[in-house]
Amino acid sequence: MKNLFFILLLLCNTGFAQVNITKGLKAYYPFNGNANDASGNNNNPVFNNATLTSDRIGNPNSAYHFNGINTYIQIPNNPSLNFGNQVTLAVWVRPTGFYYDICHASSIILKGTADYYPGNYALRFDDALFTGSKGCSGDPLTDSVHLNFRGTGTSQIPYTPYIKKNQWYSLVYTNDGTTAKLYVDCELKYAINFKETFTNNDDLLFGKTNDPIFPFWLNADIDDVRIYDRALNTNEIFALCKEEKKKDTNKAPEPVKAPFIDTIKTSTTPKETPLEKRNNELVKQITVEHDSVSVTLYDNGEIDGDSVTLIYNNKIITTHQRLSDKPITFNLKVEPGNNRNELVMYAENLGSIPPNTALMVIYDGKKRYELNISSTKDSNGVVAFRLKE
């Protein structure tokens, strides 16, 4: 039995090393001092009167509080927020009160309308599962201890434990084109057959609906909202719901003394190590607004001994960099014109869990990009920068 448990644990750890929580990410709101979209898709709010508050591990001004009366965040409709038949919604939420009005619901995320019309996607909490959908009888909410979280495509059976106030929860809702699933704190609460296309002409709202009769005002703190155009797999879901918010990856990194490479000042190449000729595979090309960007690398997933050489514009800028949960931060000068400005990650080894993978966090001024980049013995991961004209 012990051997079987060890094998299962090893398989689980191996799966976590391969997660990619940036693929298909269309909107990401880490709420680090503002409500801007950090996915690179510019889905920024046009209205926000929610209040900054502490996040789930106590960092100040790193989450938003909604007062349940009149506060909300509104993001304009955009093609990047409309999807086919797959979607994932992920958020951390701490209910601080319940909605006391006809229809006992509290809206966390909504793109669509208050009713679950075709094309909607949403997350809310209410007593509908416990009352058999009788929460819209017009009676004030009297039972506030049997509330469940649910999403577009929902079970009709209540689940336990019920929601408690002033407690942080991780919510992940997915639909893979056939099945809608809801995870609360990494635990699957329901999975039902629900086919839908997640496209509509409405704005994205946090904290309320767009229906003046049924506004479903949210009384809660929320943090780390992520919206994907695909259904995350189990390993990716667990990576999100187990994630602790790290200051290093969610705030613009401060320059560090070592290791730190500033290509503006570097005129000589570090001692070169013979490198094999490999294919370069472009992960992403980013158009930046500043002529210098900050880049931070971490090991992506389990720390397994990955070591890399970094090459920028055909020059080796550093070698034998061991990837870990500690940041490796450096600045890169972005040349104007049609220059490609390519950053190449060359795998010196594949670690104990191939391939060699890294989480790359890029800051162009206050704009943040988060990428997963991998390299093998046959190919190098490449990120290209182009200076906006």
Rank of each mutant, 00 (worst) to 15 (best):
F130Q: 00
V93G: 05
N42R: 14
F125R: 03
G207D: 00
L182N: 02
L371H: 08
N372C: 14
Y162F: 15
G58I: 07
P270F: 05
R226I: 02
D185V: 02
I73W: 06
I57D: 09
F125A: 03
I222P: 09
I311T: 01
P158N: 05
N20H: 12
F330D: 01
K367T: 14
K111A: 01
P274F: 10
A180S: 13
F31Y: 13
I303M: 08
T296L: 02
P79G: 11
G381P: 07
I75H: 04
A105M: 12
G58V: 07
N313E: 12
K181F: 06
P354T: 00
L240N: 00
L275S: 05
T263A: 11
N41M: 14
S267D: 01
K247I: 14
N313A: 01
W217A: 03
P253A: 05
T142V: 12
N210M: 11
F206C: 00
N313M: 07
S62Y: 07
S62V: 03
I264P: 06
F194R: 09
T263I: 06
F194W: 03
N200A: 00
Q18M: 14
N300D: 07
Y173T: 06
N200F: 01
Y183E: 04
I353D: 06
N166K: 14
E244H: 08
Y100L: 11
K181S: 08
T296C: 01
H290T: 00
T329P: 04
P270L: 04
D55Y: 09
G58P: 13
N44R: 13
D176H: 07
V308C: 04
